[in-house]
Design a protein around this nucleic acid. Structure first.
Length: 700
DNA sequence: AACCCATCTGCG
DNA sequence: GCAGATGGGTTC
């Protein structure tokens, strides 16, 4: 650019801008000989800054400022962090370029594939690249970065053996593995049957990974929590894929935040440097830079842990689906149940389903019965048992041959009522289920059988007054322990004294667990009783039924098959559709019917949704700028009640929320117009905090 | 966040 | 007619 003294002033036009601030450049810098221009993604949150800025690469940084490295640059009047995305010969920007100030680390933490993925995720979720990169790249740990990984890494001795033994019961299973081994990119939605050891889902996943590795490619497995990471890693060891260690090449790394920043960064670098070929991790590892990626796996995509809670709230299933597309990798969406989102992928033809025949389903699942009010009525009034008599009998009989599992709602989650005088939990006079006080007229009702408990009297002290309390797994464990004094009681749950148990021995025991915390019994549970079914499917959430079925089946999948006497009892009057799906072990039919209904009602995932929440004016401004694609509509805004919706700064004025809907085909256009509106919002410094979420798990 | 520029405002 | 305030836009 020319200086002010040499500038020509064109008549009729405003005078050209004066020379840039002298502080921006620290004297003349010699530019790199080759590719002297770096395109940099700036690590700042405002949406209107979500584009690349070009900087001059000083000759001194010519070799270190490679794509993917972290850099410091002058941006306006501040020093900011950023990433070099590209090096190019010519700048597109027709002004002077400021020089890169510093290469923070020579480690290129972003690969071209991850950059493309992050951009696609940002676009999909109407978010910014900076936000996505913050999710994708772990914090730098300089000491770990400097660790010696061996000058000549030795290839790890891995006696990986090809086997599809865990897949033979599934139609298309063997073909899927063969396709993986020969370098193909099949996409499968796999509905796994219960099974232990050779028939377990972790072993099946391990065999799919092994097939991919034997075919010369890397693999990525994303699971909900640390326990599942352990299970998958153990199964990988069984198929000959051991843990990666320093100085070697090949092997498996675990990648999760729980392991701490050093271990996390070490695992991340091992993958990025192409030293480890398999990554097993939780949520954020969906972005892990696996070299020559051949397979991505998501286990249990319905688990809420797969939904990222930070902006732009990407979901592991969607990230991996995008990734499979962009990197030409295979995708395995695996679960004991099936999410409605996975059903969309199957019905649209994007993925193939891998399911077992009906005969295999019958052979590998337990006997399931639902103990609803109808069944209980047949029993007549039971004795002083804490459980309905039939459920109690199942537990008692099963305990002779192994551990039994009781799934109870989370501690403190279920409001119940107790005697106002002696605090004994109030029970239904007919089935002995817990009472609830949620009817408008104040009459207590049974949470199990639904009967009205008019004229209730405390069985212990005879008082007639009730008070609200909360019961959880600890209390239930106590009560059940008294009912079965002859066996040990083990409690598993986040709030339990012993925390979440990974496993229990095969000996007789009563295991009480909250959903998702069920320990694995190596030989399978002899029986499981699922309590409070009515509570599980209550509520207005779109996902209530789906979540309930997923939790029930996750517990039921730990029970022995019918041929070994395995039994499951669902206690309480839940919604009929998930109840029937559990009894018939038909998660696919359930997902198909749910999707049909959602399609009929234009509810997600049949449509793409964007929720916009915040102060009324701010939300209104964002909505006003949208250029809605064909077929899209805006619902609301409506005031959001409750603590979550109240913005402290806005005082008593409640936040509002709007729901924007568009046909799935218009999803990209919808996200684009939302992102554009948010960019204007940030450039105009519009006030308030607006939370925008594409495909929120709970959009209403 | 800091800066640049255009426009407005208050006072002569 | 002009200094100083104000607001909107840019930052490579």
């Amino acid at each position: 650019m020319t200086g002010p003294g040499e500038q020509l002033t064109l008549a009729g036009l405003p005078a050209p801008r004066a020379r840039r601030r002298p502080r921006a450049t620290t004297g003349p810098v010699e530019a790199a000989e080759r590719e002297p221009v770096a395109r940099v993604a700036i690590d700042l949150p405002p949406a209107h800054l979500d584009r690349t800025f070009e900087y001059l690469v000083p000759a001194a940084l010519a070799d270190s400022a490679v794509p993917g490295t972290r850099v410091k640059v002058r941006f306006g009047a501040q020093d900011v962090d950023g990433y070099v995305l590209e090096r190019v010969e010519e700048a597109e920007h027709d002004g002077a370029l400021a020089p890169l100030r510093k290469v923070v680390s020579t480690e290129p933490v972003l690969t071209p594939a991850v950059i493309r993925l992050a951009r696609a995720v940002a676009d999909r979720y109407a978010g910014t690249l900076a936000d996505v990169l913050r999710l994708a790249v772990p914090l730098r740990h300089a000491r770990v970065e400097a660790e010696d990984t061996g000058v000549e890494p030795v290839p790890l001795e891995m006696p990986v053996r090809p086997s599809a033994s865990a897949w033979v019961d599934y139609r298309g299973g063997a073909a899927f593995l063969q396709h993986l081994g020969s370098g193909g990119s099949p996409r499968a939605v796999w509905t796994a049957l219960p099974g232990t050891g050779e028939l377990s889902w972790p072993l099946a996943v391990a065999q799919a990974v092994a097939a991919t590795v034997l075919g010369g490619r890397g693999a990525l497995v994303v699971v909900p929590d640390a326990r599942d990471v352990d299970r998958v890693c153990a199964a990988l060891t069984e198929v000959g894929l051991g843990a990666w260690s320093r100085g070697t090449r090949g092997g498996v790394v675990r990648l999760m935040a729980d392991d701490g920043p050093a271990a996390r960064y070490r695992a991340f670098l091992a993958a990025r440097r192409g030293l480890a070929s398999v990554v097993v991790g939780t949520r954020a590892s969906a972005f892990a830079p696996v070299a020559d990626l051949g397979l991505v796996v998501c286990w249990d995509d319905g688990d809420s842990l797969h939904a990222e809670p930070r902006s732009p709230y990407p979901h592991v299933r969607e990230v991996l689906a995008l990734r499979a597309d962009l990197e030409g990798a295979a995708l395995l969406l695996a679960s004991h149940t099936r999410t409605v989102e996975a059903q969309v992928l199957v019905e649209s033809g994007w993925a193939r389903q891998v399911v077992a025949d009906r005969a295999q389903v019958r052979a590998r699942t337990p006997r399931v019965q639902a103990l609803t009010a109808v069944e209980l009525a047949r029993e007549g009034a039971a004795a002083a048992a804490r459980l309905p008599a039939p459920a109690w009998r199942v537990l008692r009989d099963a305990m002779e041959s192994g551990p039994v599992l009781v799934q109870v709602p989370r501690a403190g989650y279920v409001p119940a009522v107790a005697c106002g005088r002696c605090r004994t939990v109030a029970r239904c006079g007919t089935c002995h289920g817990p009472l609830g006080l949620d009817r408008a007229d104040g009459t207590p009702t049974c949470r199990w059988c639904g009967r009205l408990a008019t004229g209730w009297r405390c069985a212990e002290c005879g008082a007639g007054a009730l008070r609200s309390v909360r019961v959880g797994s600890e209390r239930t464990a106590e009560e059940l322990g008294r009912a079965f004094p002859q066996v040990p009681v083990r409690v598993s749950g986040a709030r339990a004294a012993g925390g979440v148990l990974a496993g229990v021995p095969d000996s007789p025991a009563l295991v009480v667990s909250t959903p998702g915390a069920e320990p694995v019994a190596p030989g399978g549970y002899a029986a499981a009783v699922l309590l409070d079914a009515a509570v599980a499917t209550a509520g207005t959430s779109l996902r209530a039924s789906e979540d309930a079925l997923r939790r029930w089946m996750a517990a039921a999948a730990l029970v022995r098959p019918i041929g070994e006497g395995g039994q499951v009892v669902l206690v309480g009057d839940a919604a009929p559709r998930p109840t029937q799906a559990l009894v018939r072990w038909d998660p696919v039919g359930f997902a198909a019917r749910e999707l049909a209904e959602r399609t009929e009602l234009a509810l997600p995932p049949a449509v793409r949704t964007v929720t916009v929440r915040g102060p009324r004016d701010a939300v209104g401004a964002v909505l006003d700028r949208l250029v809605l694609p064909e077929g899209a509509d805006v619902l609301g805004p409506v005031p959001v009640d409750g603590e979550a919706g109240r913005s402290p700064v806005q005082g008593l004025e409640p936040d509002v929320q709007a729901l924007v809907r568009a046909p799935r085909g218009a999803g990209a256009a919808l996200a684009r117009t939302v992102a554009a509106s948010l960019a204007v919002r940030s450039a105009h410094r519009e006030g308030g905090t607006v939370r925008v979420q594409v495909d929120a798990p709970e959009p209403v």
